[in-house]
Design a protein around this nucleic acid. Structure first.
Lengths: 98, 98
DNA sequence: TACATACTTGCACAATTATGCAAGCATTTA
DNA sequence: TAAATGCTTGCATAATTGTGCAAGTATGTA
């Protein structure tokens, strides 16, 4: 495993490894439709600006994607991509590629 | 998902989400036998004291386990447990439990 | 006993991070 | 146009984190 890929994986895990960000991810798990940021604010008891920044981190790491709709931004999980990445890590840890 | 479980999962992901710690995990992936800390030092270019502290974090989160052997400590990955936890997260994200 | 090896711990420090508040921008509505 | 809504950004701050060095402990060896 080269350093670049290791860093990328670490960055993803770090993005997921914060309480409020993970809460946002869990919240999005339960939504069938994309949600705007104000709606997502409900799941963590922090300022809206904080939620905005956490969503930005998640978007930068490819965990969520968003669409701009008027003055709203609607977010959804990149479910299959993130799930696949986590499963690949699980496989590697369990020794599936040796 | 309750707050306690969310925090626990976030703590695990945070433990994995740092470059040198993830490097240690990857290194242990490739070892068939438990490795001592000095050997593990090779995979990250930081002081031995730093490796010691990272291994402590990984042990606290249950990522690795160790055995004391004389003046050495030999570390190994909790492969199946961590792999299972990551797969559960992947399943949840992909919506497998709805 | 003296020394070497394997690790841990205390201290200091720089860098990063999470946060709230206030002010900003963009868009929609009255 | 004025006001409301949804979100972002700048600033300040407290807390956390990663790191190296030096000194410590514990165990093995000469």
């Amino acid at each position: 495993m080269n350093a670049e890929d290791t860093q990328k994986m670490a960055d993803l895990l770090k993005a997921l490894g914060e309480f409020n960000r993970l809460s946002l991810v869990y919240r999005l798990c339960d939504c069938q439709t994309p949600q705007n940021a104000m709606c997502l604010c409900d799941c963590c008891s922090v300022d809206a600006s904080v939620v905005s920044r956490h969503l930005k981190v998640l978007a930068e790491e490819g965990v969520v994607q968003f669409e701009k709709k008027g003055r709203e931004k609607t977010y959804s999980l990149n479910k299959s991509e993130i799930a696949q990445t986590l499963r690949n890590l699980a496989d590697k840890i369990e020794g599936g590629d040796e």
